[in-house]
């Protein structure tokens, strides 16, 4: 009797232990899953802001430096038109271009500062080397170029500055149109090839915006009885 009772008790104990272990294992598994999921989420979260900054030879840095230089000349020309033109439509557009590109150029220099890179490319460094993968048709290849497409020369800038009235208006529209179109290639390349999403986004916005503004500039030239500079 006593032995039987003992055996039964042992069996009961074994069953109870098994049940308890099952609960403990299940709880442990749940705990592991929860912690694992949490770690996964936190890694994703921290990875978002933890990209290594792009290096000196990257598309991101090259675009930010060169597009900033390109923008700065547009800001200069647009500032003259905003102050000097007698044509309200030109003053409006010039102010729009000037203020938007000034803000964007500030974003470029902010990125470059945060990435530990100079806010402008070194004076002796050719432009657009970062577009080595692009066939940009200027015969410069991976070596880059001294003069970015669309940039006005010092002589052209002087001529714009010294002209007045309708002559100024038309020449401003012509130079700005060529400038906008010249920047498209860089914007399009960076929109596709920059590493950082916010750089690609800005490049895409510039490409889209300057395309639309090029149409506008062409229409404004037509409306003033003129046409784009010969390419």
């Amino acid at each position: 009797m006593g032995n039987q009772a003992g055996d039964r008790a042992d069996e009961g104990q074994t069953a109870g232990t098994a049940k308890r272990s099952a609960v403990v294992y299940a709880a442990a598994a749940l705990a592991v899953l929860l912690v694992g999921a949490a770690i996964g989420m936190l890694i994703t979260l921290s990875a978002v802001g933890r990209d290594d900054p792009p290096g000196a030879d990257s598309v991101d840095v090259g675009f930010a430096q060169d597009m900033r230089t390109h923008h700065l000349q547009a800001i200069t020309m647009a500032g003259w038109a905003r102050n000097g033109s007698q044509d309200a439509e030109i003053r409006q557009l010039a102010f729009d271009i000037e203020s938007t590109q000034l803000d964007q150029s500030g974003q470029f220099s902010g990125w470059l500062t945060a990435w530990g890179q100079p806010a402008l490319a070194p004076i002796d460094q050719p432009h657009m080397r970062w577009m080595a993968g692009a066939a940009h048709g200027h015969g410069d290849g991976p070596a880059g170029t001294e003069q970015m497409p669309g940039m006005a020369t010092s002589e052209e800038l002087a001529r714009l500055r010294n002209s007045t009235g309708a002559e100024f208006d038309v020449y401003f529209l012509q130079l700005m149109l060529r400038h906008h179109e010249g920047g498209l290639e860089m914007a399009a390349y960076a929109a596709d090839h920059a590493r950082l999403g916010y750089v690609r986004n800005m490049a895409a916005k510039i490409k889209q915006g300057q395309q639309a503004e090029s149409t506008l500039l062409t229409d404004m030239l037509t409306a003033r009885g003129s046409k784009p500079l010969p390419s």
């Binding site: 905003r82 729009d96 203020s99 938007t100 986004n201 800005m202 916005k205 915006g209």
Partner: peptide
């Protein structure tokens, strides 16, 4: 939101342009 509007950096004062 620079991802949603077309002209990041566009200004808000018209500054006497019309």
């Amino acid at each position: 939101n620079v991802y949603q509007h077309p002209e990041p950096g566009g200004r808000c004062d018209s500054n006497g342009t019309g």
